[in-house]
Each structure stands twice: as C-alpha cells, then as structure tokens.
C-alpha cells in the first residue's frame, strides 16, 4: 500500500492556517478503518498464536501498519524510521534470537498460574475501558494538523527541534544506547577462565568418566532418514535418544519414529533373514524404489511422544516374540 498523503485537514492557504479542522479527509477515514482492523488483528495474532515466529510476523505486520499511520499523521520521518528500524532491525533481532532459542517450539496454551487468565482479562478489559473512557472525556474535537509545522519539511523541522530544544535529551539517549550496547555485549560474552582442553585430555577424561567410551551413535541420517532430528535405531529396533544432539533434545524437537516405521523395520529384518547371501548394501541401494519398503516420515511426523513410546514398546515385544 502506498503511503497516504498527509492530509492534515488544514487547507494550504495561509489565511486559514489558524483555523482548526474538525475532520480528516474521507480517504484517510477509509484507510483508518481498514488498516486499523488489520492492526488490531495483527496485535491479537501476536498475543494468541502459539508459535513465536507467527507472533513475530503478526507483530511486524502491525508495525508496518503503524508506520503507515505515522505517515498519515504527518510524521514522515518517524514512519520511515518505524519501518527501517523497527520492522527491519528490531524485529529481525527478535527473529534471530528466536532462531537461537528454537524456532519451532510452540508455547503450550495451558495456563499454569491459577487465575492468571481471569486476572489478565480483567486487568486488560478494565484498563482498556478506563483508557477509552478517559480519552472520551478529553473531548478534543478539533485539531491543528502538522501542516504548518512541517512547512519546511518534516525532517528539517524535527532536526531543528532535536538539536535545539531536546539536545540534552538527545545526548543522554545517545549515552543510553552506548551503555545498552556495552551491556548486551557484557551479558552475552563468556570469559574463558580456564585453558581449553586438548584432544588428549578430553579423551582421558572420557575414559575416566566411563559412561560413553566410543563416539556417540549417529542420528538416523544414514539409516533411514535424511535428517539429524530423527533418532537412530538400536539393533533391536528401538530408537535411541543418544543419537540426537543435545540442543534438539532440549528444544523438544526430536522426531519420533512412528509405529508403522517400526513394523517396517521388523519386516525388513525378516526379509534380510530370508534372503541370505545378499548383501545389505546391495539390497538397499541396488533395488529400485519400492513404496512398500519406503519408510517415509510423512505419516509419523506429528505423532506425540506417548504414542511413539507405546509403539516402541510394542516393537520390543515383537522382537521378544521372535
């Protein structure tokens, strides 16, 4: 959507500059209602969507719309800054951190604090009603418009104010930004306080610990799936969590191996036993695509943990029966 013209409701003729307007242009009115609705929806989306990425996108949308409103209100500089700094930089920072923390982790919508929702709703509604009531009471029916203030261009006017009347605040805010930058660096910086271990020391330590001598087993990448988040299967067909990287485990982003897949593995083992002599290598790579033997992940991707565990148990029972 293109930027709306700055219809301050003030006629450009000099004589009428002092007259206050009471209404904006029709175009702006229409734009307000359409964009306002979208902005509210975006805000609701930010609050209500389970996945943080979706929230972030909704928020970005709302911010862009707010940028348009700034422009509509004659704040051209702020509108641009809003898009460039907020939507561009800040939101990107958010997304960046989101990626760090785990992009696909969804918030559980189950409330853990007793009465928190009711209190939040009550507070929100109360505050909203009060604010609206307060604004209604303010009874401002006319407005000046920034046409005259912006006469020499919005940016020069702002700059004039900023470097005259608000120069002290400006300097202080600059210092604040510097401090914030230093603070963030300090917070995330980790000092290495001890000598990093050599390979030999690491190996000796591992032997001493004695829990996992050989390297950790690889994920199911080579076995069945072309993904690091799919656990590798142990010889008895059970998936091993050890094969998944700790970060993915922490984020809860381990894909479960579906029950059906386990059946198929069992069948595969059976067939292997049947066709003795034939190398596994040749069978796996030498044969053309067989849909029945294909252990695709499309069907088991969404299965929950409990189901997967049950399936795992069943598979183990089958193994035992054999």
């Amino acid at each position: 959507m293109p930027a709306l013209p700055a219809t301050g409701g003030v006629p450009s003729s000099g004589g009428a500059l002092t007259l206050a307007a009471t209404a904006t242009s029709g175009g702006e009115t229409a734009a307000f209602w359409v964009l306002g609705t979208i902005a509210v929806l975006g805000a609701l989306g930010t609050v209500l969507l389970r996945r943080a990425v979706h929230s972030a996108l909704c928020l970005a949308g709302t911010m862009v719309i707010l940028a348009l409103f700034y422009l509509a209100n004659g704040a051209y500089f702020l509108g641009i800054v809003q898009i460039v700094v907020y939507t561009g930089a800040v939101m990107m920072l958010f997304l960046f951190v989101l990626m760090l923390v785990g992009v696909s982790a969804a918030d559980s919508l189950k409330e853990t604090l007793k009465g928190q929702r009711w209190l939040a709703a009550a507070c929100g509604l109360g505050l909203g009603v009060l604010l609206v009531a307060g604004i209604g009471q303010a009874a401002v029916h006319t407005f000046e418009g920034v046409g005259r203030a912006n006469a020499g261009g919005n940016v020069p006017a702002l700059a004039t104010l900023l470097f005259t009347k608000y120069v002290v605040a400006f300097e202080v805010v600059g210092a604040l930004l510097t401090v914030a930058a230093v603070g963030a660096t300090l917070l995330t910086h980790r000092e290495r306080i001890e000598k990093s271990k050599s390979q030999r020391e690491q190996a000796e330590e591992r032997v001493k610990r004695g829990t996992q001598l050989p390297p950790l087993p690889a994920p199911g990448v080579y076995a069945r799936h072309n993904a690091v988040d799919r656990p590798g299967l142990l010889p008895d067909g059970t998936p091993s969590e050890l094969t998944i990287s700790a970060t993915l485990r922490d984020r809860g982003q381990v894909r479960e191996v579906g029950q059906e897949a386990l059946h198929r593995v069992a069948a595969l083992e059976q067939r292997t036993a049947d066709s003795h002599g034939q190398t596994e290598h040749g069978r796996m790579y030498g044969e053309p695509h067989d849909p029945q033997r294909d252990v695709d992940d499309a069907d088991d991707a969404g299965q929950g943990g409990r189901e997967a565990r049950k399936a795992r148990g069943e598979a183990r029972e089958e193994e035992a029966a054999k």
Binding site: L113, Q116, L119, A120, C123, G124, G126, L127, L130, L131, G134
Partner: peptide, 16 residues
C-alpha cells in the same frame, strides 16, 4: 507474570 498483573492492576487503579 503475577507481578505484572498486580502492576497493571495498579496502573488501572491509578487511571481510575
């Protein structure tokens, strides 16, 4: 979040 609720409650009371 509980603290935040009381804060917003307080803000609402102030506005009222």
């Amino acid at each position: 979040r509980s603290y935040a609720v009381s804060m917003f409650g307080g803000a609402a009371v102030l506005v009222a």
